[in-house]
């Protein structure tokens, strides 16, 4: 099951070798699991603490960043023809592939450790997965933390790969009923750095009107482009992990960080459940509308 040499700490192995099951599921989710024939084996988790700085974010150089071979880059030229040390001669959006890659490393390490714990228990899948990532006590350390409940499907052989899902309980039961099998959780982060052009900076500073006669309010193209692009990148990362399967129950969130005036990072994070259809959809009868008496 686990071809890679185990990197689980001793304490984890000791815990997992004990008899009784543990489950992070609520009682109703636990009951639903039993109903589905999923036997809870144990709460499994995985961590990865990463050194985290915004290094490589060297900020603004003398000339625009050449860009990595694969990432998104967009350049903005100053239309004013002014040469002055106070005037931005150029602006640029570029994808910070190294941030995206480190994030993926952290998430994947924690994820594979969690699967390794599940493998130790002889689990077939992990349900009710919870993920979090955040700064740890020290500056410059980010911890990725994943946990879930490992389960075994009663009267079924072990699958080639341990499957996983954020779902549990009735929601998971309905996924099966609707004709889907959970494959894995998928998650990605896109990071776009914005070094403002002169126009962007004036507009973001609220002084854009100085540079154009009539436009009192205008769309800030460079920011809009970075925002829409980072969302597109996050979605393309996830799509690349689907291999023809579907993404269910996704959530997409955005985060903007300002390092200095005219220097921003725009992040988009997308995560959800990769699921696969195993039978044709059998539409259920229209649900009964109810009104609660209270």
């Amino acid at each position: 099951m686990t071809p890679t040499p185990s990197d689980l700490p001793e304490a984890a192995k000791r815990r997992l070798s004990q008899g009784a099951f543990t489950s992070g599921l609520s009682v109703s989710d636990f009951a639903a699991c039993l109903e589905m024939g999923l036997e809870p084996l144990g709460l499994v988790q995985g961590f990865c603490a990463m050194q985290w700085t915004t290094f490589g974010s060297f900020g603004r150089g003398v000339t625009p960043f050449a860009g990595s071979s694969s990432g998104y880059v967009e350049n903005y030229q100053c239309p004013h023809g002014m040469i002055s040390s106070e005037h931005r001669m150029w602006g640029q959006n570029y994808e910070q592939t190294w941030i995206e890659n480190s994030w993926r490393d952290g998430f994947n390490s924690a994820y594979s450790r969690m699967l390794e714990e599940a493998g130790t228990l002889g689990a077939h899948g992990v349900v009710g997965l919870i993920d979090s990532e955040g700064p740890l006590s020290d500056v410059g350390v980010v911890e990725f933390h994943l946990s879930g409940t490992a389960v075994r499907v009663l009267d079924a052989p072990a699958p080639h790969h341990v499957w996983s899902t954020y779902l549990a309980g009735q929601r998971l039961a309905k996924i099966f009923e609707a004709g889907y099998a959970p494959v894995s959780v998928v998650s990605s982060v896109a990071s776009v750095r914005v070094l403002s052009s002169c126009i962007t900076e004036y507009l973001m500073g609220g002084t854009g009107a100085m540079w154009s006669v009539n436009a009192e309010t205008t769309e800030i193209e460079q920011i809009v482009s970075a925002q829409n692009e980072s969302r597109a990148i996050a979605r393309s990362f996830v799509r690349a992990q689907l291999h023809g399967d579907a993404l269910h129950g996704a959530s997409m969130t955005g985060l903007t960080r300002e390092f200095a005036q005219g220097d921003l990072e725009i992040q988009s994070r997308l995560s959800g459940n990769r699921i696969r259809r195993f039978k044709d959809f059998d539409p259920l009868t229209a649900p009964r509308p109810t009104v609660r008496l209270s």
Partner: peptide, 28 residues
């Protein structure tokens, strides 16, 4: 920063792992 890279800090990972696993083992 030694390397100027976002890399895993194995000692931290181990410490946090250890602490949580201990708590869970005691509960079990």
């Amino acid at each position: 920063g030694t390397t100027g890279q976002n890399v895993e800090l194995p000692n931290f990972t181990q410490a946090l792992y250890e602490a949580r696993e201990l708590a869970m083992t005691r509960m079990q």
